Amino acid sequence: MTLTDVALLVLIFLFLLYAVYDEIIMSARNGKTLLRVNLRRRNKIDSLIFVALLAILAYKNITDHGTAFTTWLLCTLAIIVIYVFYIRWPKLLFKAEGFYYGNVFILYSRIKNMNLSEDGYLVIDLEKRRLLIQVARMDDLDDILKFFVEHQ
């Protein structure tokens, strides 16, 4: 097994670990999920470039008569990347004591101010940081408002 194969195996393992954390573990941590809101996908061009680079590497490996194992690893990584960037939705999970945004749990007590911008961003001011949250559907902003009214 070459160093390239080891690096590909590590990347595949890390992407799978992230996917399991994002889909299963995060939903179960810090209590029951009270509201789940899909967020708008970002960085579509960057992820397309990454998938294209993986395709170029697989093509180069095939034309240079590289090992079949490396080709399979590249294809597996491309499939996982397509899932993570294009099939899976980034989400906002509201729990009883806080919410998950960007896979980080934020307590409600850290919220100093909340606003809604004209272009559909939910702006949440924390102690030292500002979160700009853009939901996939505008109706979800009403659900978030109802959630905060009912649970605060």
Score class of each variant (00 low, 15 high):
Thr4Val: 11
Asp5Ala: 11
Asp5Gly: 11
Ala7Pro: 00
Leu11Cys: 09
Leu11Tyr: 01
Leu11Lys: 00
Leu14Val: 12
Leu17Cys: 13
Leu17Val: 10
Val20Ala: 09
Glu23Asp: 10
Ile24His: 04
Ile25Pro: 04
Ser27Tyr: 13
Ser27Asp: 14
Ala28Gln: 13
Arg29His: 01
Thr33Arg: 07
Leu34Asp: 03
Arg36Trp: 01
Asn38Gln: 06
Leu39Met: 08
Leu39Tyr: 02
Asn43Trp: 10
Asn43Arg: 09
Asn43Val: 06
Lys44Tyr: 13
Lys44Asn: 10
Lys44Trp: 12
Ser47Tyr: 15
Ile49Met: 11
Ile49Trp: 13
Val51Lys: 07
Val51Glu: 12
Ala55Ile: 06
Leu57Ser: 07
Ala58Arg: 00
Tyr59Ala: 05
Tyr59Glu: 01
Ile62Met: 15
Thr63Trp: 03
Thr63Ile: 09
His65Lys: 10
His65Ser: 12
Gly66Arg: 05
Ala68Met: 13
Thr71Leu: 15
Trp72Asp: 01
Cys75Leu: 11
Thr76Asn: 07
Ile79Glu: 00
Val81Arg: 04
Tyr83Ala: 07
Val84Lys: 09
Tyr86Phe: 15
Ile87Lys: 07
Ile87Asp: 04
Leu93Pro: 03
Lys95Asp: 03
Lys95Ser: 03
Glu97Lys: 09
Gly98Met: 03
Phe99Cys: 08
Tyr100Ala: 02
Gly102Glu: 09
Gly102Asn: 11
Val104Arg: 12
Phe105Gln: 02
Ile106Lys: 08
Arg110Trp: 10
Lys112His: 08
Asn113Tyr: 15
Asn113Pro: 04
Asn115Pro: 04
Ser117Phe: 11
Glu118Pro: 09
Glu118Thr: 15
Gly120Tyr: 06
Leu122Met: 14
Ile124Pro: 07
Leu126Tyr: 05
Glu127Gln: 03
Lys128Met: 02
Arg129Asp: 08
Val135Thr: 12
Ala136Asn: 11
Arg137Trp: 02
Arg137Thr: 08
Asp140Ser: 13
Leu141Met: 03
Asp143Gly: 04
Leu145Asn: 14
Leu145Trp: 14
Phe147Thr: 08
